[in-house]
Design a protein around this nucleic acid. Structure first.
Lengths: 331, 331
DNA sequence: AGAAGTATGGCAAGCGATTGCCAAAAGTTG
DNA sequence: CAACTTTTGGCAATCGCTTGCCATACTTCT
């Protein structure tokens, strides 16, 4: 496949009349070699089309200049912001950024982790599905930062869904709703637990009845089941684990001849692309997910480059985007 | 960070009373070692928590058991199917799959390529933005397969947009439209060229006037500019480079007080999530993109494992999904 | 001018696997 | 039972780069 063998440090060294170590340093540690020599080496290297083999470097140094982002579902728009933010931040530091899909499974996540552990300098785990214990174990041997998940002692960037969930309840309460259901996400989801906690306590404080149903997988297709379950419950407000589910719910309600927001109010989380395209446009909790992705990489980099730094957990504010899927309670 | 040093082939070898080469072979070439020995080695390895360092292996063997998919924009729903298909196929063969974003730029794509070239066994380029020449050059030294792009002598999985575009024109013609504009995508996009070719020739054959406008970046935000340009042209049917752009166009037309499909018809490409959520629901060309991703990996693997195999270019049929954004021509 | 300090380059030993080659053991065959 | 083939395991070189240590050469200071 490759007729012309790739040139190595040795080829460049020979051609430039220096030692291999000098070539290496000319690339990776410029200040360790004279300016003139360096220039010369670089020129020769360019002429030979030399490019360092990152594998060889990593094998010796243990550093790969690469970080990985593990995401439960790449095609879930919820993660777009996170992905984009993390990627931008990584590239800004000259790091290779790789993205891997864990398919909503903790086992899978761990498997990916193990596959990549030697090939990257650190991991960002978005919405990690592994248990706290497993996560901590892995953190003992590797650099990692979390997004939207809180585990003792690990750096994390977290969108404040607790406060956001309170906003949702207050919004519903102010519209006169007396009851709500939470259509819950995957049971390993830290967010799902967090949201329910905040929803139920705030609901109690405001005198609303709150029920949790599910878990439902956070995709549009689950909307029908979720909507039907909610109708059995009878609550006037449905809070779905995410926008995909919420949109699925909207469709199902329409199918069953109910009008939103007249008969039922529906709220989602994430403010994904499509949330304002559907009819009625979805009321949803928007969060600075791009910022969260950026911040997670930032925290990871702190770990890698300044091992002494105390662990930080950064909380970012969310805000409710009110659209047409919520309205006054019926009757 | 890692208190307990990772164990190596040598540790396992010592502990099991065999040579390092035997340990290596027990993992990577089982049939080359006696069944009993192998069992024993594996047991010891498990006890020591040994896991092969893929970097070290790759350095020597040149094989990484990893493939990369390069995508212009990870957050563009158009690529979801491709990503999913490619990932599934790769995992089915036990390969590590990594995904990288090229941000719609050929230069960026090439840079990513060079960063990863030594770390992967091959590349799948989805909607490659590099020139034919550059692509061929890279293919000389690396295994690669293309999605939705045709370059002489390179394996490719292609959704048949040509035929699809003809369907679009015929659909519009049958509704009485006498003119259309194509709101073009990025100028490096092979698809954009392909689509225009098919649209314009079919239009000519059917006696429609066809104009190309653009390039527009294939995102919702560009919809306003695209719509305005189209209105100046005056054509009754607007064919947008993709659904994102088409949705942007729909919004702009609504803003300007035009009714779709009464005043204008709008067609997109891709049938992304959201195409049937917006109002009016979008008529769009759907393609088997998941299958294309799967197939591209398949072709890549043929190259890697059976170097003799003739290069194949597989064409997959597309079909028009007619929804509410197209209707009879005005007047 | 001599001592002390700094900048620069080379030597060589790794990093942790893979693999070609060889030798011993085991299995076949006439 | 000798001659031959096949299995199985070990030796040691190798992949391409990094880096600790040492030897010069060049500054700087007293």
């Amino acid at each position: 496949m490759s007729p012309a063998k790739r040139s190595t440090v040795y080829d460049v060294a020979r051609e430039a009349g220096v030692a291999a170590s000098t070539v290496s340093r000319a690339f990776s540690n410029p200040r360790r070699v004279g300016a003139a020599t360096r220039e010369h080496v670089l020129a020769v290297a360019a002429r030979l089309g030399y490019r360092p083999n990152p594998l060889a470097g990593a094998l010796q140094s243990g550093r790969t200049a690469t970080i990985a982002l593990l995401v439960p579902d790449i095609t879930n728009p919820h993660f777009f912001g996170t992905i984009r933010g993390a990627e931008r931040r990584a590239k800004a530091s000259g790091l290779t950024f790789i993205l891997s899909n864990t398919e909503e499974s903790g086992d899978n996540e761990q498997r990916q982790f193990e596959r990549l552990e030697r090939s990257v300098d650190g991991f960002v785990l978005a919405a990690g599905r592994m248990s706290d214990e497993t996560t901590k174990d892995l953190a003992r041997e590797h650099n990692l930062a979390l997004v939207n998940r809180r585990v003792d002692g690990l750096p994390a960037a977290i969108v404040d869904d607790g406060a956001g969930s309170r906003q949702i309840v207050e919004h519903l309460a102010s519209l006169g709703h007396r009851s709500l259901v939470y259509l819950s996400g995957p049971k390993e989801s830290w967010h799902a637990a967090e949201r329910w906690r905040a929803l139920s306590t705030t609901a109690a404080a405001r005198g609303l009845r709150a029920t949790r149903l599910g878990p439902f997988s956070p995709r549009m297709e689950s909307g029908a089941a979720a909507a039907d379950a909610a109708l059995v419950d009878g609550a006037s407000a449905l809070v779905a684990h995410n926008d995909l589910l919420a949109i699925g719910v909207l469709r199902r309600l329409a199918e069953r001849g109910l009008n939103v927001p007249r008969d039922r109010s529906v709220v989602g989380y994430d403010d994904i692309f499509g949330a304002d395209l559907c009819v009625p446009a979805l009321t949803t909790l928007a969060g600075p997910h791009e910022e969260a992705g950026r911040m997670a990489v930032e925290l990871l980099l702190e770990r890698v480059t300044l091992p002494g730094t105390p662990t930080r957990q950064v909380v970012l504010p969310a805000h409710l985007v009110v659209r047409d899927s919520t309205g006054p309670a019926p009757e």
